[in-house]
Write a protein that binds this DNA or RNA. Sequence first.
DNA 1: TTATATGCAAATGGTTTGCAAACAA
DNA 2: TTGTTTGCAAACCATTTGCATATAA
Lengths: 144, 144
Amino acid sequence: MIINLKIVGDDMKQIKNSRQRDMILQALKLSCTHPTADELYQTIKLQDAHISLATIYRNLNLMDELGIIRKIPMGSAPDRYDPNAKKHAHISCRNCGKVCDLELSSIDAVEKELMTLTDFCAITYDVVFTGLCAQCQKNQKKES
Amino acid sequence: MIINLKIVGDDMKQIKNSRQRDMILQALKLSCTHPTADELYQTIKLQDAHISLATIYRNLNLMDELGIIRKIPMGSAPDRYDPNAKKHAHISCRNCGKVCDLELSSIDAVEKELMTLTDFCAITYDVVFTGLCAQCQKNQKKES
DNA sequence: TTATATGCAAATGGTTTGCAAACAA
DNA sequence: TTGTTTGCAAACCATTTGCATATAA
């Protein structure tokens, strides 16, 4: 791991390796569904029956702060996590909850416009679109 | 109020007027801070000491579903509410929590790009940028 | 008269935290 | 040795829900 220091208040905190953190990062990297903390917990429990959900949360939060992974806030649904820390948007299905990655080149223009409109600085964003995925569209047609 | 029907499952639900709902909508319209449910509760309690927080939540959710107001999901912080139901983005200060409205014309292009990239339909979005507001930037300089 | 809305209190559920023991460096 | 991480259980807290009562139409 490249980053091994975390700034807490005025001083640095050393980050030590941990078997659990490695497992969590590996499981997240192998996933392709932007899993929730609990979904990761269920998966990892198969390898290590004694791991705690609190450990999952602590490490996901830590790695999010360090910029190794990204937390995707999902409104009222549980947060999801993305092994790809590169800035990108997401779209989630309001019916089945599935989350897909979006590479939107036009979003750069939005960031630029934003700069001219506001006196905020150090701007980041979480863009989560919501819609109905192709699969759920089909299913809805069948039902009616 | 224009809309007075709500679709629940297969049938319509009549919406009845209520003194409480009127108070909540009025308080929200008079606000300019995108208040949380609890902030509205504190304000409205001054007029009606017996109003319940559950009533605030029920009515805010109802009016959000009816498109009269908008709920702004704030990630880990409590949801905020906006009397302006027109589609627009927000930026919030990561330090003091303040939320400001943003009219971003360039966001239309993002929606268009999105249409060409995905097979999702019925797309809505909640765009919440996060940054440091001018006031908090000043305060941070003073401290250091 | 009948369905909808309310107030209250209790439940929910994702997430965080306190603490003593385990572990990394 | 020293500070960080873990597992467990309990706490947290925004939000929702069950239920009897009040209210709108």
